[in-house]
Amino acid sequence: MEFKKIITTFMVAAISVASSITASASDFPQTFEHRYGTTVVEKKPLRVVSLSYSGHDNLLAFGVKPVAVRYWYGDHPYSVWPWAQEALGDHQPVILKGELNIEQIASLAPDLIIGVTSGVTQEQYELLSAIAPTVMSEAKYTDYSTPWQLRATTAGRAVGESEKAAELVGSIEKQIADIVKTHPDWQGKTASVSFFYNGTPGGYRSIDTRPQLLKRLGFDTPKLLDAAADEGEFYANISPEDLTPLEADVVIWMATGDALAGLKEMPLRKKMQAHIEGREVLADNLLAGAFSFSNTLSLSYALEKLVPLIELAIDGDPLTIVPSTQKSGLLD
């Protein structure tokens, strides 16, 4: 089927149900300036395709059920992790895996495509924007560095749920403020969000959403880690022969399965001061996922689980056991 014919055929379906949805006229049109130009959303969308690897959670939090979502990783129904399953309900979105299939997306007859933190290229954007208004990351951000607050409020504006987005962001901001208030000693400390992937250790640089969250709690990314990759890169691979860039007041390891086994076998990890002084935190699969998704549904869970672990790790006393680290075998 020719590309234009796909668009024409399936857009008729979206138009036919438009009369069943009402929205405040004052919410639209909405204009978005982004890395590839300007997008105008003229009216409240009815069929939203989410290309962000984690952005569909925000839509679900707003009560918007996307017709398609982007698969990132994990083995959860419809690529929706436990913290968002209640919001998903019995909805069954199409799952977009691997390379984007433009004709598949066109066949879904979307009237809005959200591509913030999706890695969509200029060429792909041109094709997608011929199908429906397509909202991308602002030009000042890299592919995956848009702050979680802006991702939420951008999606909220695009679907006519700005108030709900602001409410959810405000709730998490209060949670963060309360943590900061009760942990003044964290200000100026350092934390590395570290990983072991395909046999290589590494860490996330300060432009990544995970260190951004820790920065809000008071923790800086180690300067050596930030300097270990080119500007614009959100992570840096580190030589297993020199783990110095990962040293910090708290080292948060994100490794499960084979990666965890490899991490435990890495000889120089046990020479790190963070290990010697008991300042390692192992984020299990669910915590690591919530931390990585960093959206309005995952962040409360991530903070609730992560903060108590940091509290135990940061005292520098190896006799203070961090349960997740012990359970993982990293203390053996």
Score class of each variant (00 low, 15 high):
D249N: 10
P133S: 12
D315K: 13
V135P: 03
S129T: 12
G202E: 00
L88I: 06
E265T: 12
R70I: 07
E86P: 04
Q175R: 12
T22E: 15
T8Y: 04
L213F: 03
A259M: 09
S162V: 14
G278A: 04
E163D: 15
S24H: 11
S206T: 12
S239R: 09
V169W: 03
G232A: 08
K164N: 05
V67C: 09
Y125R: 03
F3C: 02
T200N: 06
K189Q: 13
Q326N: 11
L217K: 06
W148M: 07
D226G: 09
A228N: 02
A236P: 11
P110R: 03
G160A: 06
E304P: 00
N237D: 11
L260D: 06
P245I: 13
G74N: 09
Y53D: 01
G329M: 11
Y53K: 05
I252L: 12
P93S: 13
L59P: 07
G98I: 05
W81V: 00
R216E: 14
Y197Q: 10
P222G: 09
E280H: 09
E304N: 15
A61R: 05
R70T: 03
T8H: 05
P77R: 09
N295K: 01
T154E: 05
K327F: 03
N101I: 13
N101S: 15
Q122C: 04
P240W: 01
S192R: 08
F28I: 05
V49W: 08
D57T: 01
V64Q: 00
V67G: 01
P133T: 11
L297C: 08
T325N: 09
D90R: 07
E277L: 14
V281T: 10
Q104K: 15
T200L: 11
K97N: 10
D284E: 14
G37F: 01
Q273P: 10
V250W: 04
T22K: 15
R70P: 05
